Amino acid sequence: MNAPRLFRASPRIAQRLRVSRRYSTRPTDPAPPHPHPPTQPPGSTQTPPPPKKGPSRVGTFYRNNTYPVLKSFLLALFTYQLAYYVWLKLEVVEEKSEQQGTIQGLEEEVKRAVAQQKRNASDVVEKVTRSGDVNPEEKKRKGWLW
């Protein structure tokens, strides 16, 4: 047998090391037995106190994770509301600029139409004044018939 010197000197230690190496995932000592609840003497009317239970897994989960989840949710909600408010403000600014552009375009159109009407009116006035100078007989006609 080719074992190191330590194993040749102490076979019990060598056996313990082999076992612990071979079965390192298994516990070496069994768990101690659970103590029995105290028994009451016969004839006593007191009920035994219920055994103390540790906290449940569900309760521990919610106790440990409620605050971080709530914090994350509120932060996400705040971020969404902030982004929505900024988007809404940009939409209002865009609509205002579009309306201002439309209003300016309509104002220019009205100015052009008024200028065109003034030119047409001045042309009509010139025609009327010229027509009066050309035909003086039309000024003499009065009444229902010629």
Score class of each variant (00 low, 15 high):
2 N>T: 05
4 P>N: 14
7 F>D: 02
9 A>H: 02
10 S>C: 03
11 P>V: 02
15 Q>Y: 12
16 R>Q: 07
18 R>K: 10
18 R>L: 12
19 V>F: 01
20 S>M: 05
20 S>A: 13
21 R>Q: 12
22 R>I: 01
23 Y>L: 03
23 Y>P: 02
25 T>G: 04
26 R>I: 05
28 T>Y: 10
28 T>C: 15
30 P>Y: 08
30 P>D: 08
31 A>Y: 15
31 A>N: 09
33 P>R: 00
36 H>R: 15
36 H>P: 01
41 P>G: 06
42 P>Y: 01
43 G>N: 02
44 S>D: 04
44 S>C: 05
44 S>K: 01
45 T>I: 02
46 Q>Y: 03
48 P>A: 10
48 P>G: 12
48 P>E: 14
49 P>K: 02
50 P>Q: 04
51 P>L: 00
52 K>E: 03
54 G>E: 14
54 G>A: 10
57 R>A: 13
58 V>M: 13
58 V>R: 14
59 G>Y: 14
59 G>F: 10
60 T>H: 07
61 F>R: 12
61 F>P: 13
62 Y>P: 01
64 N>E: 11
65 N>Y: 10
69 V>T: 09
69 V>Y: 15
70 L>F: 11
71 K>T: 08
71 K>N: 14
73 F>V: 09
74 L>T: 12
75 L>N: 10
75 L>A: 09
75 L>D: 06
76 A>I: 03
76 A>P: 11
78 F>C: 09
78 F>G: 02
79 T>S: 04
81 Q>C: 00
81 Q>N: 06
82 L>C: 01
83 A>W: 00
84 Y>F: 07
84 Y>R: 05
85 Y>L: 08
86 V>S: 06
88 L>F: 09
90 L>S: 07
94 E>H: 00
94 E>Y: 05
94 E>C: 01
95 E>H: 00
96 K>Q: 06
96 K>Y: 03
97 S>C: 03
101 G>S: 08
101 G>T: 03
102 T>G: 05
102 T>N: 12
102 T>D: 04
103 I>W: 12
105 G>D: 10
108 E>I: 09
111 K>Y: 11
112 R>Y: 11
113 A>N: 11
116 Q>H: 14
116 Q>R: 09
117 Q>H: 12
118 K>W: 04
119 R>C: 13
121 A>F: 06
121 A>H: 12
123 D>W: 05
124 V>I: 13
124 V>R: 09
125 V>N: 07
125 V>G: 10
126 E>A: 11
126 E>N: 15
126 E>Y: 15
128 V>Q: 11
129 T>A: 12
129 T>D: 15
131 S>I: 02
132 G>K: 14
132 G>R: 09
132 G>L: 14
132 G>P: 00
133 D>P: 00
133 D>A: 15
133 D>Q: 02
133 D>V: 14
133 D>C: 12
133 D>R: 08
134 V>M: 01
136 P>A: 13
137 E>M: 09
137 E>G: 07
137 E>L: 09
138 E>Y: 02
139 K>E: 08
142 K>H: 11
142 K>W: 13
142 K>R: 13
143 G>S: 02
144 W>N: 11
144 W>F: 07
146 W>L: 12
146 W>Q: 04
